[in-house]
Amino acid sequence: MKGKRNIFLVGPMGAGKTTIGKQLAEILKLEFVDSDHELEERTGAPIDWIFDIEGEDGFRQREEVVLEELTQRQGIVLATGGGAIVSDKSRNFLAARGVVVYLETSIEQQLERTRRDKRRPLIQNDNPRETLEALMKEREPLYLEIADLTVATNISSVKSVAKEIVELMEQPIA
């Protein structure tokens, strides 16, 4: 894994991809990029608005284009959106162009970390737990399919998770 120069963080909403990604980039002296933020910058519109106007399919098409470009950069830590792995093309870009780290977390942690966030369109409903459980059932196999490393984020601090990723990346490939 030492040869790969990019680190791509995947996982469900609330797993800590952005927060851990910033810490990881700081430790490794790499550029941090958030694909959702990048998409919002390029479109001039917030993600929830894009979902409202274009639906999830329209959003995923835009996300695919952004990920195709971002994954071609070198020396970045990239936090992806929770659903970035839904697209076959996006999964292929991620798997082929860097070390993919699946940040695993529980539904409880997701609920805790997202409960005040009104900008997550998929959980703006009467039963966010049910939605998160359905998303996890659909997406976890996709996260695992492309993950080079899986790191739990439930109980550890941001700094300790980032350090664990660095340590795992330094180990020789078995």
Rank of each mutant, 00 (worst) to 15 (best):
D52T: 13
F51H: 03
F51P: 05
E64R: 15
E63A: 12
E54F: 11
E68D: 14
W49E: 11
R60L: 13
I53A: 04
D52F: 05
F51W: 03
A79S: 15
T71D: 06
E69R: 15
W49Y: 12
T71P: 05
Q72I: 02
E68S: 14
R62H: 07
R60F: 06
R73H: 11
F51C: 07
E68W: 12
T80C: 07
L70Q: 08
L70E: 09
G81K: 04
G81F: 06
L67Y: 00
I53M: 04
F59T: 01
G75Q: 11
E69C: 03
G75T: 12
I50C: 00
V65G: 02
T80V: 11
Q72G: 15
D52E: 15
E63L: 09
D52R: 14
Q74I: 08
V66R: 02
G81R: 08
G75L: 08
A79D: 04
Q61Y: 01
V66Y: 00
W49K: 12
F59D: 01
I50D: 00
R60W: 08
L78N: 04
E56Q: 14
D48C: 03
G81S: 12
G82D: 12
I50Y: 01
T80I: 10
E56R: 05
G81L: 09
E56T: 10
G81Y: 08
G58D: 09
V65C: 02
F59G: 00
T80D: 09
I53Y: 06
Q61F: 00
D48Y: 15
W49F: 09
L67S: 03
G58W: 09
R73Y: 12
E69L: 12
F51D: 02
E69F: 13
L67R: 01
E64Y: 00
D48N: 14
G55P: 10
L78H: 03
T80H: 06
I53W: 02
E64P: 01
G75W: 04
D57C: 02
R62V: 00
Q74G: 07
A79Y: 02
R73K: 15
R62G: 13
